[in-house]
Amino acid sequence: MLPMATSDVVVIIPAHNESATVANVVRAVRAEGFPVVVVDDGSTDATGELAEQAGATVLRLVVNLGVGGALRCGFRYAVENGYRVAIQCDADGQHDPANIHALLDAMSKEHADLVVGNRFAGGDAMEISRSRRFAMRVLARAAKRANGEPIEDATSGFRAIASPLLGEFAREYPTQYLGDTFEALVASARAGYRVVSVPTTIHARQGGVRSATTPASLAFLARALLVVKLRIGIRFRSAVQAEAEAEGGAKGRSTGD
């Protein structure tokens, strides 16, 4: 990971019917000095318009692709527009944009490709149900097995992703529930990318509803663990390979090959 400037960073916010919160989130992120891309995931309310008025670039998906699909679109935008780091942030106001600097700081210091914001180690640790705590422990254990070092909050949607992993995410990204968080993390670690975790603060949801009920969450948990165990999910090119190809491409472009 090379030293970066804020102009290398873009914040990607997937949003589906988040008109109650998206404008405030966009304004808060812009106040931190970062450009914002809101991926309007087939919203039927004014999410896109409000995000645009608040100063975001808006990518409008004409059909709902789910969080993973919206994120991949955002990653593609980031790569096509020359950004080297993408921050993934929720539109419901749970993530504190002030913590973006902590994610970037950890990325620079730890030479990390993926930094995950840990919602359970910050100042206002999130209160969660017992079943959810159990699920998160199971996922954290599986994540640690793939990554070597612990990632307590493997389902956190507050992350920083650096090139060349960003390019891999733009090429292929899991789209199922838990795929966009846990599976992407495990696949990154298995491909040799450095994944670290930093404490972040979390706020109560300012609007919207949880994306899955408890039975559905348990089914998704079982599915995600099966996918990871059987290694039938998405596979990223190795960090070394992606780096070499990126360097080769840059060299080719500079020499006019």
Partner: peptide, 14 residues
């Protein structure tokens, strides 16, 4: 437009 304007380049604090 403000939405498409890239921010002024400044190093990320470390």
């Amino acid at each position: 437009s403000a939405a498409n304007e890239k921010p002024v380049e400044k190093p990320v604090p470390s």
